[in-house]
């Protein structure tokens, strides 16, 4: 029997998140390889530009509509999505490994009695089966896993699966009204970090560590980040010292990120820090200690003083911007 693949897309404030296109494209590619069908689904009341999913190889997208689905609710999303999967008979389901995906995917997997592969960084087909690779032990090792049983759920690490260039195809959008949802857990307030880009979503991150010497010097990190349209990140040492908020912490007890560019300023590169950022596409390190472990993962390094190098970077990028 041919597989039925479902890409679960994610919207916030009515806009599809970038990871949704990565999930759609990956689902479409796997469907081609397996000779399976593929559809997408998204939950929410008002969502813009859903037909764009067609640019990434998925021709049909269902929108499950209810005013109470506009914001995420674990109970409402679990119930609505599981019912939809039961109705459509999807047996391979992909999510993004985001705050929402990490929360929702295991609930849905239990409801539909599916195996679960979280935070995958690579997928391969072997003998008609999906073999998923995922980091374990904070990225110090990888496992290849196979899921047995009739249904499978995978979550994909954001910014790892390249959606490629969009095509001109659009997807057919079918809206389905969901009459009633289970609100036994409900978001009553969303607190946005003031006007700041979050490390988990940024394609460039500029992070500062203890080598920045004090909170009063982080304006350098912020200025460089601003110029690059980047998010500000931090090591645990500076978060624990109270120089920066925990929301900026990258690493094992902070956030796992994989931006296109990660710039580490005065960060030693402890294993727990590397755990959160080693899958970044390009890593730049500035550290005055040439033996700092961060250089072991850096693509480009400068073994110098941040107070000299960072102002020079700021100047150089300003020059560039002025053309």
């Amino acid at each position: 029997m041919a597989n039925k693949i479902l890409a679960v897309l994610e919207q916030r404030d009515g806009k599809l998140k970038k990871v949704s296109f990565e999930v759609a494209k990956t689902a479409a590619d796997i469907a081609t390889e397996l000779g399976a069908t593929v559809e997408a689904v998204v939950l929410g009341n008002e969502i813009e530009n859903l037909e764009k999913v067609g640019n990434y190889g998925v021709k049909k997208v269902f929108q499950l509509k209810n005013t109470d689905l506009q914001n995420y609710s674990t109970s409402a999303y679990t119930q609505t999505l599981s019912n939809f999967i039961d109705e459509t008979g999807a047996d391979i389901i992909f999510f993004g490994n985001t705050a929402l995906g990490k929360d929702l995917a295991p609930h849905v997997a239990v409801k539909i009695n599916a195996g679960l592969g979280m935070d995958c960084t690579h997928l391969e087909i072997s003998g008609g089966e999906i073999i998923a690779t995922r980091p374990v032990y904070a990225g110090k090792a990888l496992v290849d896993i196979k899921l047995n049983g009739e249904k499978r759920v995978f979550t994909l690490r954001p910014n790892v699966f390249n959606p490629g260039e969009p095509s001109n195809e659009s997807a057919e959008v079918e809206a389905k009204e969901i009459p009633e949802v289970n609100l036994s857990s409900k978001v009553i307030e969303t607190k946005k970090s003031e006007g700041k880009l979050d490390v988990a979503e940024a394609s460039i991150i500029v992070s500062g560590g203890r080598g920045m010497k004090g909170p009063e010097h982080f304006h350098l990190v912020e200025e460089l980040a601003d110029l690059l349209g980047a998010a500000v990140g931090a090591s645990r040492a500076v978060v624990d010292a109270g120089w920066r908020p925990h929301s900026e912490q990258v690493g094992q007890t902070g956030k796992t990120v994989s931006p296109n560019l990660y710039i580490a300023l005065g960060i030693s590169g402890a294993i727990q820090h590397l755990a959160g950022m080693r899958s970044s596409k390009y890593i730049v390190a500035v550290n005055k200690d040439p033996d700092a472990p961060i250089f072991g993962v850096a693509d480009y390094g400068i073994t110098g003083d941040v107070f000299e190098v960072v102002p020079a970077m700021i100047e150089e990028i300003k020059k560039l911007k002025q053309g």
Partner: peptide
């Protein structure tokens, strides 16, 4: 449900380029 087929170490990264030891390396970095 989960069957571990293999555990492996991540492929070692190509050694990065050290571009210099002070601000004079910045233009090349950018």
């Amino acid at each position: 449900f989960t069957e571990i087929i293999a555990m492996k170490k991540p492929a070692p990264k190509q050694p990065g380029k050290i571009l210099g030891s002070d601000a004079s390396a910045v233009p090349e970095l950018i």
